[in-house]
Write a protein that binds this DNA or RNA. Structure first.
Lengths: 128, 128
DNA sequence: AACCAAGTTGACGTTTACGTCAACGTAACT
DNA sequence: AGTTACGTTGACGTAAACGTCAACTTGGTT
């Protein structure tokens, strides 16, 4: 009695994520996605949706596809105790990387604020 | 009576920023740097140091060299009122982009936290 | 003088992440 | 049956960001 999950076509995904079918197939060829098939057609589920969302966000944050693939693999369960431990380690590594990025962006924004003040001051001075 | 500023060679920079001389020359060819010359040798100053630092950080945040070049240009004064206004607009644009990145990283980190909890719970369950 | 370290300018090669055809399959209308 | 829309798998092309030589210069060192 499980509700029939919503599915998506490859062009549904392309529109939804403002990308191309070519790119989506490429991610699959690189092992980031593995959609079901209806004949030869790809059928995407909500799980694929989540993964692609992660991929696209990763792109905007400058992550490589290899890094996003690592992250995706962390979100797969599949494990004994040793595997779980490895996942926890990878999570810790990822957290450090993200923390570092976070810090660098905050830094960049502060410098931007400072520069804005300088420019505004220069404008006032020039108007006197 | 201005103090003689410290200068750097291209390999000084390569070491300092953990990159290569080739990359640094490439940034120059792309218009991101414009060091002075002593004969044919490049002489870098603190201003160049700041710019390269910005470039490298940009790389870690997934910015293109074109984007970093735009940022660098914002940090050059050189302007009448119209130019200043344009710079302020660009600063506003950059701030929005950075804010968006900031938000997405925070999001990613929260998901990482959630996943960590799930994995730890799965480990405990397995041990019972 | 000979040599070595560090620098220079081409020029071509490479990796990542797709774009762009071409040639074909298939389901749904008309 | 014919067309249209959407999908498929190759295969080759491309932009960004350098890597990797090759051939040369230049300033000290033995």
């Amino acid at each position: 009695m499980s509700k029939p999950e919503r599915t998506y076509s490859i062009s549904d995904f392309a529109q939804e994520f403002d990308t191309t079918t070519r790119a989506i197939r490429f991610y699959e060829s690189e092992g980031l996605l593995a959609p079901a098939r209806d004949g030869q057609k790809r059928i995407y589920t909500h799980a694929d949706y989540v993964k692609l969302k992660l991929i696209m966000r990763g792109k905007r944050l400058g992550w490589t596809l290899a890094e996003s693939r690592e992250l995706i693999e962390m979100y797969d369960p599949s494990g004994n105790q040793a595997q779980y431990k490895r996942v926890l380690e990878k999570i810790a590594e990822s957290r450090e990387r993200m923390q570092h990025q976070l810090h660098e962006i905050e830094q960049a924004m502060m410098e931007l604020d400072a520069q804005e003040k300088r420019v505004k001051a220069a404008m006032k001075k020039q108007l006197k």
